[in-house]
């Protein structure tokens, strides 16, 4: 009886907490939590420079931009590992696209050209929901084609955790 009572009061508390959190996270915008000055790769950067970057830094994904700062695409660890390990990837991936990628000499040739983007006025709730539902790890934040930041799952976790406490 006591245990049940404890359970229901704990549940009521977490429901209340959940509602409160939802309200709060709808007030937080991406621009408040994004990394505003992410490391970027230029469209014409050579492959070796990109390998070097992945070797030195340990982010999962880097945005690729042109000379005006417009977002062109992204390069992530999966692409780099596939390029370094081309010979051993599954034969299903031995397509001309993969082969063309492995011959490219610049960022433009190897990047994924249509990354998923959000604007800086998207709410924390919206991106958290998309990340959970569709297993998205990060978003490039783009306002009027210009890359203004990047937001990763860890940033979202930190933001929600700080709201919770």
């Amino acid at each position: 009886m006591t245990a049940e009572g404890e359970f229901s009061s704990r549940q009521a508390f977490s429901e209340e907490e959940g509602l409160d959190l939802e309200e709060k996270c709808n007030e937080v915008l991406v621009r408040d939590i994004m990394i505003t000055d992410p490391i970027t790769i230029k469209g014409e950067d050579p492959i070796e420079k990109i390998f070097d970057l992945f070797n030195k830094e340990h982010f999962h994904t880097y945005p690729v931009v042109d000379e005006n700062g417009d977002l062109l695409g992204i390069i992530d660890q999966n692409i780099i590992l596939q390029l370094l390990f081309t010979r051993h990837v599954s034969r299903l991936d031995h397509t001309h696209l993969m082969a063309v990628r492995s011959l490219s000499q610049s960022a433009r040739g190897i990047m994924k050209p249509h990354p998923i983007t959000i604007t800086s006025d998207t709410t924390l709730c919206e991106i958290a929901e998309t990340m959970v539902k569709h297993k998205v790890e990060h978003f490039c934040v783009v306002d009027e084609k210009k890359l203004v930041g990047i937001v990763c799952k860890s940033d979202v976790i930190q933001a929600i955790y700080s709201l919770r406490s």
Binding site: R87, H94, H96, M98, A99, V100, L103
Partner: peptide, 28 residues
């Protein structure tokens, strides 16, 4: 179906050769 020979090109180090890259462009 170019996929069948990509492995051979890779193994022989000919993917980036002139005929190798022409094969890929042709496959597009």
């Amino acid at each position: 179906s170019i996929g069948v020979v990509v492995k051979t090109l890779l193994d022989m180090g000919y993917l980036s050769s002139k005929p190798g890259s022409m094969m890929l462009t042709s496959a597009i």
